[in-house]
Amino acid sequence: MSATRHLPALLSVIAGSVDTIGFLGLGGLFTAHVTGNLVILAAHVVSGDRATVAPMLSVPVFMMVPGLTRLLVGRLAFMGLASLRPLLVLQFLLLAGFLALCLAAGPGVDPNAAIAVIAGMLGVSAMAVQNALVQVALKGAPPTAVMTTNLTRFMLDMGEVLLGRKPDDRAAARARAMRTWSAILGFALGCGLGAACKAAFGLLALALPTGLALLACAQGGTTSRPPERLQA
């Protein structure tokens, strides 16, 4: 299990870079979380502007994919297989498809073009799988794509470390804070790397998170965690 200790931080780098590259390259589409797309969609509706297709589709897609992921995890558990590596492989394949379609679309692609919308939904699906796998296969790990939750948890834990009266509670808060901080730092690093690579290479920058996702597959494959037994 020690080989997967740093996996949440690596997944955070992936999420940060994918979210930033998708936002810059596909007309403001957030791939790693649905909240931003809801805000953009609501702003378009209120202002009377024509909303782009991808943010509208991203909401049902992001809702559907975790449900399908749950079915896959249940099937893997029935077969006696751990779900971590298969979900990491699925995420890698979705990111590889995201990269391939963006390259096929060429530079200056219209965000409302069919190929760009499909590519964006592959990116959204990859991040939805990542959000799901952290909860079902990396229990106890912090979220890797929702930094509002992580920042809140980190500050509360730091307050407990500094002001708490019970040694056990302070120790638990310190351990949580270290895990959460690595995810926050990883996401920020991913955002910076994603922005720099997008400026230098265009949507070819998606090769960065895709390559990191392949590395995550290798890390996830070394775990000895037993298969999950999900309740029906």
Rank of each mutant, 00 (worst) to 15 (best):
H6G: 13
L7I: 01
P8F: 07
S12W: 12
S12D: 13
G16D: 14
S17Q: 10
D19K: 03
T20N: 05
T20D: 01
A32I: 03
H33F: 05
V34M: 15
V39N: 04
I40R: 08
I40P: 06
S47W: 13
T69A: 15
R70E: 14
G74A: 04
A77H: 15
L93K: 04
L94R: 01
G97S: 11
L99M: 06
L101M: 09
L101S: 02
L103E: 13
L103R: 07
A104S: 08
G106F: 05
V109P: 14
P111V: 02
A114G: 07
I118K: 02
V134C: 06
V136Y: 15
A137C: 12
A137E: 10
L138V: 07
A145E: 14
N150Y: 14
M155W: 13
G159F: 13
E160S: 02
L162Q: 06
A171F: 03
A172L: 00
A172M: 02
R176S: 00
R176L: 01
A177M: 05
W181L: 14
W181F: 14
A183V: 06
F187I: 05
C191Y: 12
G194M: 04
A196H: 08
L203W: 10
P209W: 10
A213Q: 05
T222N: 09
T223L: 11
P227G: 08
R229C: 08
A232T: 11
